[in-house]
């Protein structure tokens, strides 16, 4: 089936099987390996991307479901060579250790701050509750998102 998905502002047209999952479309068809592929069961959240501006777990979305829609991956957070403020927060506050959960965490953090520019710690923890950090580095992830909230205010 021929689909066109706009990823990080660029339309991409490919012939795909309906059973192809969005995460594999992004990684294998488009080479955007910033989106990680983890538990494959919609539990861990490393595959989180924005679909029409809303975070979804791309291991549980078919690529054909994104046909005609807009996807943002971690590669799309940077603008004109400038890291997004949430990326800067993770740098400043050591928000990553192995980095496996980081792309999903960043996209959820961006979405959270778009909706709630000044979230408290409980709101941040709730927002990332569908994402597992294998290093258990949640303290610094929460600090990083708080840093970003303050930096963008």
């Amino acid at each position: 089936m021929r689909i066109t998905v706009t990823v990080n502002g660029q339309p991409h047209t490919r012939d795909v099987e309906p059973r192809l999952l969005l995460v594999h479309f992004l990684r294998d068809e488009l080479g955007l390996t910033g989106t990680h592929w983890g538990c494959d069961t919609s539990n861990c959240g490393v595959c989180t991307v924005h679909l029409d501006g809303v975070p979804v777990k791309s291991c549980t979305v078919l690529a054909v479901m994104a046909d005609g829609h807009e996807v943002t991956t971690v590669e799309g957070l940077e603008r004109d060579g400038e890291l997004d403020v949430v990326q800067r927060g993770f740098v400043e506050c050591h928000g990553l250790q192995c980095g496996f959960c980081t792309p999903g965490m960043l996209l959820t953090a961006r979405w959270l701050l778009d909706r709630r520019p000044d979230p408290d710690e409980a709101e941040i923890r709730e927002a990332i509750s569908g994402q597992l950090c294998r290093c258990t580095g949640y303290e610094n992830i929460v600090r990083s998102i708080r840093w970003a909230a303050e930096a963008q205010s």
Partner: peptide, 9 residues
């Protein structure tokens, strides 16, 4: 029910 990301979908 599940988590915020799953609830989006």
């Amino acid at each position: 029910i599940a988590d915020p990301i799953v609830r989006n979908r």
